[in-house]
């Protein structure tokens, strides 16, 4: 003998097993199912037949779960982007503070930088893990991050260059070799994004998107860490500091593009395989 309530309870269990665990969607779906069964039964169908037709119309649990995940992504993406913005403001605030006019002690600045980095990490992981898995979109996002890092490095490297090109005191302190090193670092920063694009042929193909994202985020954070370490090092003579600083920025720029290179390599492989 067909038991409608038992059948609905079994259907609910199937939905839960498929991963529709949040109460609101499941409750809404059950209400819908009951309304449809009621309508079918009023039209003259038996309880069993009405149940079969109604569950078929509602759709398979796997597909529904995927669709609900998409809805979840929209809000997680917003939270992620908001967190990245907050973290970036903290990091920039600390890095752009003049050493003589700093309100915080060095160890407090390091703590704030770590906190800012953690917020950026949380934001990026939320924003990226919940993005729809569309290869070209991921490549574009990582490319923007790579360009941002490169532009940041170029901007910060240009400031001391302007100093030794225009201020006689600094100009005298920086010899030809130092200048070559600094300009080489600047070139590396500018070309880093292009470099990652070209490197896609020799880069390993990481099939798991989550792993690629983690490596990309780790690259970005390592870049921030390098800048922070360089920033907080004991003051060096201008000529050595400028070389070390510019190459640290160049490395940060290169690391910031790691995500782009890996995504590009994976995308190329997908295109070849398909």
């Amino acid at each position: 003998m067909f038991d409608l309530e038992q059948a609905i309870a079994d259907w609910r269990r199937q939905m839960l097993a498929a991963g529709i665990k949040t109460p609101v969607p499941l409750e809404e779906l059950e209400i819908h199912l009951r309304e449809e069964i009621e309508r079918q039964m009023k039209a003259g169908l038996s309880g069993q037949k009405a149940f079969e037709i109604s569950t078929r119309r509602i759709g398979s649990p796997e597909i529904l779960k995927c669709e609900f995940k998409k809805a979840e992504r929209t809000s997680m993406k917003k939270i992620g982007i908001f967190a990245v913005a907050i973290g970036a403001v903290i990091i920039l605030r600390i890095l752009t503070e003049h050493p003589d006019a700093a309100h915080l002690r060095k160890n407090e600045q390091v703590e704030w930088l770590i906190a800012g980095g953690a917020i950026v990490f949380f934001g990026l992981s939320n924003a990226f893990f919940y993005f729809e898995s569309n290869d070209s979109r991921n490549v574009r996002r990582w490319k923007i991050i790579g360009i941002f890092y490169s532009a940041f490095a170029v901007w910060l490297t240009t400031l001391p260059i302007l100093l030794f090109l225009t201020v006689p005191k600094f100009s005298a302190a920086v010899g030809v070799i130092e200048r070559v090193f600094v300009f080489a670092a600047l070139a590396v920063s500018v070309l880093s994004v292009l470099g990652w694009k070209k490197c896609r042929e020799i880069l390993p193909v990481v099939p798991n998107r989550r792993t690629r994202t983690m490596v990309g985020i780790a690259g970005c954070l390592l870049g921030i860490l390098l800048i922070a370490l360089c920033f907080f090092m004991t003051p060096l003579p201008f000529s050595i500091g400028i070389i070390l600083g510019s190459w640290t920025l160049a490395m940060a720029s290169v690391l910031g593009g790691a995500g782009y290179g890996l995504e590009k390599a994976a995308q190329e492989r997908t295109l070849i395989d398909s």
């Binding site: 119309r57 759709g59 597909i63 529904l64 609900f68 929209t74």
Partner: peptide, 16 residues
């Protein structure tokens, strides 16, 4: 429409 598919659409629109 596959009946159940409407609800994710509604939820997405609500999030937006």
């Amino acid at each position: 429409w596959t009946d159940g598919m409407l609800y994710p659409v509604l939820h997405r629109m609500e999030h937006r």
